[in-house]
Design a protein around this nucleic acid. Structure first.
Length: 271
DNA sequence: TGATATGTTATCTT
DNA sequence: CAAGATAACATATC
């Protein structure tokens, strides 16, 4: 599922191909998928593609922005006008199509949880002000991590996944980061030791995810802006590795449920 | 057929 | 009131 590394991969690609193009037309194929006025978007030039946590932010000329959240099954694919007519055609799960100066931006979303919102600068500013730092932000310090962990009795994994406390970390990378730091995901947050190691591991694992272009795990449909799958799934430390041998101590990776989410860890070396 | 998967939020409970 | 737990959203797949 798209977490920060997947979204950042898409952002970097879109920044290269979309910046400077003008949105000529917006086709809303499903009402749930586009909130706001498509007519206000048409005719605007794309200034830049940015990102906050798992949300893509398209900065448009004038007082308008597009916020895009892929949730679980969203895809954002760019096709140059020279692509085959077959590729350019709307698929079964295509929800929004942007016709641009030199191509098309297609938003697919099988399960309809994702959305695109057109919002003005003032709305954006107020909204961003409420958000916590991203895991890759400078504001995410050891001290900050210490603060959010000390303030909760919940399992450490659930606190790290809480988008109101820390932005960008999802179920795949949190499992791998806790393995990296040798911390049991069930540990109550305020009892976690070696916080600076956990801090280092979170950043390291997320950056590794970006390096490999995100992950397309089993049963997942993530693709980047060119429609290609990620590669981090070949680098998973513990995610989806239940029954396999622990890379660190030779123990066996176990799967449990925590907060209703699949949780993978090595019981013998994650304490 | 029913359980399962995941990101986020609404809603209920403690 | 706040923190925590859980349901809900929609759909394909095992």
């Amino acid at each position: 599922m798209p977490e920060l590394p997947e979204v950042e991969t898409i952002r970097r690609q879109l920044q290269r191909v979309l910046a400077g193009q003008t949105i000529k037309k917006v086709d809303r194929l499903h009402p749930k998928s586009f909130l706001g006025s498509p007519s206000k978007v048409a005719g605007r030039k794309i200034v830049a593609i940015k990102r906050k946590a798992k949300t893509i932010w398209v900065d448009l000329e004038g007082d308008l922005n597009l916020l895009i959240h892929l949730k679980m099954t969203g895809q954002l694919v760019y096709l140059p006008a020279s692509a085959s007519p077959q590729a350019l055609q709307a698929g079964k799960h295509t929800r929004v199509v942007f016709t641009l100066t030199k191509g098309r931006l297609i938003f697919n979303d099988m399960r309809l949880f994702g959305w695109i919102k057109a919002v003005d600068n003032d709305w954006l500013k107020k909204h961003f002000a409420k958000l916590p730092p991203d895991v890759v932000d400078k504001a995410f310090t050891v001290k900050y991590l210490d603060k959010i962990l000390l303030s909760s009795n919940r399992a450490v994994k659930l606190v790290l996944l809480d988008q109101a406390k820390l932005g960008g970390v999802g179920n795949i990378y949190v499992n791998d980061a806790l393995f990296c730091a040798a911390i049991n995901p069930q540990t109550p947050a305020k009892k976690v030791k070696r916080i600076s190691q956990l801090h280092r591991c979170l950043i390291k694992v997320i950056n590794r995810g970006i390096k490999y272009g995100g992950s397309t795990a089993k049963d997942e449909n993530y693709v980047n802006a060119y429609g290609k799958r990620g590669n981090y799934q070949t680098k998973f430390l513990v995610y989806e590795q239940a029954g396999k041998t622990c890379k660190r101590c030779g123990g066996t990776i176990k799967k449990i449920k925590l907060g209703g989410r699949g949780t993978y860890f090595c019981p013998s070396c994650q304490k």
